[in-house]
Design a protein around this nucleic acid. Structure first.
Lengths: 148, 148
DNA sequence: TGCTTGCATTGATGTCTGTCGATGCAAAGC
DNA sequence: GCTTTGCATCGACAGACATCAATGCAAGCA
């Protein structure tokens, strides 16, 4: 039911070997398209909450019957969002009797996190280098707006 | 030109204090909407490449005139994507004479990375706990598909 | 066998988004 | 002043997306 859905990061995809991270060389079109597909899956409040509900569950897996009531949406809509998360490789599922259980696949979360982290480190270096020339206040101001 | 555009993470937004990360308590609707806005900005190949081009630039900033030729798109389209990245709080810009320079704001990248990392750690624990009951092979198979 | 439950799929519809040409606007040079 | 250059904004349009009701399908139960 599920293995075939991992189209984003197929194991035979040579271009998926590894993205350099934002700090390295600029992404080529293939890498960008692949990453964008995953980020797009995360770019919806409903899907983000679904992922959050699954990830925060003790035991690591959740029955759909526990997810649907948490939203003010129809069952087909929830099913549709779960399918998109599955196609992005962020979750997987398994049927057990009457119920279907979903769990998070940590590998891609890892990859995204690393991609963003290397970006930050590289960028922080660049900013440190340019801090003496009048751009520092703007960056510092932006920092103050977010309590990381 | 730029400070007012940071609508996603306004400094007076109490709900933006900090998201718990995927591993903590499930996201509420406000947090999910806020994070989704940022992920959605990253959910486009063109914007991802733009961000990558800016982040990987020595000096940390890039003139728009250097970005536009890198794409097979019209100048208004590039400008549109840059605006969305700016509204998401991922980049900022400044006009200098005839040219406009963009640079990356690392704070939100940090926050996203942390959000995803805590998710992974929490999820990995859960998987480790459930590894003995037949779900392990599916997770291991997914891991094998990504060379993180 | 027939009924019920849980979830996925289909088809339709309204909304959002990416893209472009045209235009506006600021800065620099003549 | 006028012209040119660099970039943002506007208006329009095609394609993508979120959502729903209806339907299909598998599993359990009477």
């Amino acid at each position: 039911m599920s293995k075939q859905e991992l189209t984003v990061l197929g194991q035979d995809d040579q271009s998926a070997a590894c993205c350099p991270g934002l700090g390295g060389a600029p992404l080529d079109e293939g890498q960008a398209a692949e990453l964008a597909k995953i980020f797009k899956a995360l770019g919806d409040p409903v899907r983000l909450r679904l992922l959050s509900l699954i990830a925060s569950r003790a035991g690591g897996e959740v029955c759909v019957c526990d997810l649907t009531p948490a939203f003010d949406l129809s069952q087909p809509t929830i099913s549709h969002h779960l399918k998109l998360l599955r196609q992005a490789g962020l979750i997987d599922c398994e049927r057990r009797g009457t119920w279907v259980y979903y769990w998070v696949l940590p590998a891609i979360l890892d990859r995204l996190s690393m991609f963003l982290t290397t970006a930050r480190e590289r960028e922080a270096d660049a900013v440190a280098g340019a801090e003496a020339e009048g751009k520092a206040d703007a960056v510092a101001g932006a920092d103050a707006e977010v309590t990381v």
